[in-house]
Design a protein around this nucleic acid. Structure first.
Lengths: 219, 219
DNA sequence: CATCGTGTAATTGTATCCAATTATACGATA
DNA sequence: TATCGTATAATTGGATACAATTACACGATG
């Protein structure tokens, strides 16, 4: 059981978290403008923390702020999505190779627990959050904080496609199977197997995300 | 000749650029606090754009903002520096391998021009800026905007050590020689040679930065 | 009818002001 | 004397108010 985080956070950060979810859930279309005043009144705050939240999301690559015009959600092109998955392949392969030798029985139990929790997730946001948690637990023993942050940063702009396109059912079998193979590889320290599974996992996800991107671009 | 950017920028962005330089030049010590009011009066603006600039620099990893306490410049540990250079190796190797086949006579002339400009640089900031420009021109033909942005992001938190430690003389020979080898490899499309030179270039820089980190940590 | 000014409304960027929190000085107490 | 508690100052976070810029409606003109 985790200790509650003493609530010492800023409203701008809370807003950023909320807006991140809204973007993932497709609240705004491709180039639609996010109005500061509207968001401020919606959440009962002034525009100052709204602006700081928008700046934060811009630094995460989720939207782009144009001078005196407004903030519009960014829409990765298929080429950018490809590039992001190539980068994820580079970074996550490095992470998993470093993490695997350092996994132990306890960390593998944790992985299994997270996977169970993931398969029980009810809504799409919980499901994507569970997937993130699983992979972070998989990579954490590498003790590479910068790479882990980079992993998060690379996922951020494309998770919306998974959230919006995939229900908890789509590709659930293949994806759960790959996760279980990763747990097995972690338990036995089989780096080549983990690398192969990870590559397959990423390639499959890439195809789904590209398809979702095309669909949402049309609609 | 590049067209001047129509000056359409915000004061927060201008402040961020200036503060970035100040951090690179060692204006603040390891955990020293940046005072908003002081910066605001120094630049003749209110605290609002100062805060936005600080938030921007935090997102770049140059400083960390603590709630109701203030912003202090972040100080990478040797382990973090190692990790950053490992990531640079991954990303820049990928970039150079993709860029090399797409270099032509014109782009190589541009590389040579930038290298000449770099060797003429007078102050340390101009020198580091020239190094950044050279590597960006080297990687740009890859047409991988995300990777290029990542390259910038990885350099940002460690360039200060190069700026503060290295004069234009330190390791100038070896470093200029490596740059010329990279130009030759680009002209001939010799990917293995470029990868080897890049690896050596990065490793040499890593050593210098780690030494500078240790020195500045002591003083 | 299309196109170009012009003026007004809407929106963002910044300054000023207030509230919330933290740091510091100073005295009480063991 | 060292430590704790309290009052005050210093600082940040946020709200309100104003200035700068852009978007839009509307009419004039070819």
């Amino acid at each position: 059981m985790s200790i509650p985080p003493l609530a010492a956070t800023t409203t701008a950060a809370a807003l950023a978290t909320r807006l991140r979810q809204d973007i993932d859930q497709g609240r705004w279309q491709a180039g639609e403008l996010l109005r500061q005043e509207q968001l401020a009144s919606e959440f009962g705050v002034s525009r100052i923390p709204v602006r700081e939240a928008l700046a934060q999301l811009q630094s995460e690559g989720l939207l782009r702020i144009e001078h005196y015009r407004g903030a519009r959600v960014s829409w990765p092109t298929p080429a950018e999505i490809d590039e992001i998955f190539d980068l994820r392949h580079l970074v996550e392969s490095d992470l998993i190779a470093r993490a695997l030798p350092r996994h132990d029985e306890r960390s593998c139990r944790e992985l299994a627990r997270l996977q169970g929790q993931l398969e029980d997730a009810q809504d799409r946001l919980g499901w994507i959050g569970g997937d993130i948690a699983f992979h972070e637990a998989l990579y954490r023993p590498a003790e590479r904080p910068r790479s882990l942050a980079l992993y998060r940063q690379l996922r951020a702009p494309i998770d919306r496609f998974s959230v919006q396109q995939l229900g908890p059912e789509a590709r659930k079998q293949g994806w759960a199977e790959e996760h279980r193979q990763l747990i097995t590889a972690a338990a036995s320290g089989d780096v080549p197997a983990a690398l192969a599974t990870l590559a397959a996992h990423l390639d499959a996800t890439r195809m789904v995300v590209l398809a979702a991107c095309a669909d949402l671009g049309d609609g």
